[in-house]
Design a protein around this nucleic acid. Sequence first.
DNA 1: TATGAATGAGAGTTCATTCAT
DNA 2: GATGAATGAACTCTCATTCAT
Lengths: 208, 208, 208, 208
Amino acid sequence: MSTTSVASPESNDVARSRRDEILSIAAQQFAERGVASTTVRDIGSAAGILSGSLYHHFESKEQMVAELLLPVMQRQVGHYRELADGSSAAAETLRALIKVAVAEAAQTPSETRMFRNDAQSFSEMPTLQPVTDLLVEAAKLWASVIERGIADGEFREGVDARLVVAAMFDAVLSTTRWFSGKRPQSPVRVGDALADLFLGGLLRASST
Amino acid sequence: MSTTSVASPESNDVARSRRDEILSIAAQQFAERGVASTTVRDIGSAAGILSGSLYHHFESKEQMVAELLLPVMQRQVGHYRELADGSSAAAETLRALIKVAVAEAAQTPSETRMFRNDAQSFSEMPTLQPVTDLLVEAAKLWASVIERGIADGEFREGVDARLVVAAMFDAVLSTTRWFSGKRPQSPVRVGDALADLFLGGLLRASST
Amino acid sequence: MSTTSVASPESNDVARSRRDEILSIAAQQFAERGVASTTVRDIGSAAGILSGSLYHHFESKEQMVAELLLPVMQRQVGHYRELADGSSAAAETLRALIKVAVAEAAQTPSETRMFRNDAQSFSEMPTLQPVTDLLVEAAKLWASVIERGIADGEFREGVDARLVVAAMFDAVLSTTRWFSGKRPQSPVRVGDALADLFLGGLLRASST
Amino acid sequence: MSTTSVASPESNDVARSRRDEILSIAAQQFAERGVASTTVRDIGSAAGILSGSLYHHFESKEQMVAELLLPVMQRQVGHYRELADGSSAAAETLRALIKVAVAEAAQTPSETRMFRNDAQSFSEMPTLQPVTDLLVEAAKLWASVIERGIADGEFREGVDARLVVAAMFDAVLSTTRWFSGKRPQSPVRVGDALADLFLGGLLRASST
DNA sequence: TATGAATGAGAGTTCATTCAT
DNA sequence: GATGAATGAACTCTCATTCAT
């Protein structure tokens, strides 16, 4: 049941099933109000349906969340694995990681906001264990790249890899705010700006 | 139980009232589960009291939140104003901002986690308007410092001040995780690490 | 259970909806215990339902009250307007007013008891403003008839119209007690008796 | 305990005890909001005291009600007994009953409003049984006078004594509204107006 | 597929009352 | 006499979920 449907926004070609449609509507609601504060009534009425009818499509509210987040996270970790396994220099790899992460955030803004705001409560939703596992793996992959950079002498010594990864993740998860609103920015530029910031810092290559 | 929790910054040594004690217990619960998911019954039983009895001390759950967050934010913005008004170089000022923010986060970890996780829902709590206003002011103060740095040629050109501030805020609000747990880290070191990261980046000044 | 209760005047024979059924059950409870003292649990269990399920049909307890009283009052004021606008002699008109009021009271005994007992608290229920407005209009219509009677020399001079109207309203609202119990009386007779009393008084007309 | 304190407003001479003071404050609250809707907190804060402190003076909220209403009703029934036992003509007696009832209502407006609005709920307050008994006796005394008047040929035949008594009581209990406000009226005049109305009716005696 | 009625647990809050100080 | 903290029950209302139709 969970494998047949993929609600991610990129399935845009032709026959988006009603199920997927509902799922993406739910994602928006979850993103706006938070998972806990979004009621099935909210979702139902946004989808033009009664809340009880949602249960013909999904087993539970929690399952909707899982079904939204798992594929997104799977794809992301897939990218990270490939990049982290590559042989490029650490700085180059890290820049690629940041850019792909921002690109994914831009493509799945609702899910990204859910990660940002609701990850804390995932531990209380057993169904989300696989998602949490992937989140942990993602963090490890990023950290390994940074540690490699330090070992290679590419990055400064004394850098705390875990702290840096946390800062980067937080930053990436918050980029969704730049992709909508009055002056939406290009994901590519935001990704570059973030990579520049974390790699080179604010200061001029003072080196002057 | 009462001596280990320090939540309201203004509480001086002498006679921590029962009220303050309950408040700091509530802060912990809010931090752990999120404001919306923390029930007054949770707070009551953590305080060894019936939920109804909370209303002897507080008018509502929302008021507890406001009473927790407002003084914390007020003090923080107070610091930011002073620093932003100073005449130091932008980089130096920014470093000071980051360090004081991290120090405050370390001193009020529960409230900081509430800011991190629940700020999204503040708009639905009318009582929290003043808090939201202060948050906005804080962001503006930080941004002004960055803009000054760019204008002065201290910081790289092309930097998006708002994006950078958002990244910094996110990073600061997430530092609480380092101050507890198995290997608690020193707020000073974490502050320095963060300042180094955002000012100098990961790369070796190698630029050499 | 459903066939014995007739509360909402507009209910015609065919398909009394569950909603109307619940409403008339609520009316009975409100009449017996007073609105404030009737709990939604009372209503629910009288209707063979859980209290929470009431909210599938109604937005709030207050809305139930409004939905009960407004149509009753609207119909009554409709009658009063017609009668007051008529060209009959004041005494005749007043007799008609009293009789129709008593007839309505007999048809909607629960709602009438609610008016008698709970009108005082209507001011605290914003939803009931329209009902209150109609009550005021009703009193004015009755008073205008009495004033006309005085002006025409039909009624005694020196009569305080407002005081008399208040007495009549009180009397009418209390007639419900005669329509049930061991020896239920005919609304027509009660209406006549009341009209006789207020128009002719207790004394034998002859007495002079 | 109940015999030592008399809270009725006429005890104005010198040392109104705190107890009596509180009692009369409670009476006002009860009159304004109804007994059920008046909280002990309301009473306390109107008396400048904490709600818990009320229990140093009274055993319960219900006891306060009883202590307010019983003496008022006792005195009233005392008057009614005397008048009903007298040898005056029925009409004269009835006029006296109405006038004394209105006078009492004017002297104890809060208690009178309580009778008007809360009598329905007395059955649920065991302590008020004596009050209810007196109410019943009062009604019987009035009815006996009316029946005598009919028997004597003084009053119209066919009059329903109980219905008339009910109408009179309702009217009397509602007179409190005329004794306060912008243009307070004299109790004597209101009593006369009511007696005129019920004895002579609205129509000109001339009608012949 | 959807509706509409209902469940049952639990939410925040209120309130009469108690009692140590 | 009064305070202030607490109780315990009850309140209105919400919500995820179920199920006959």
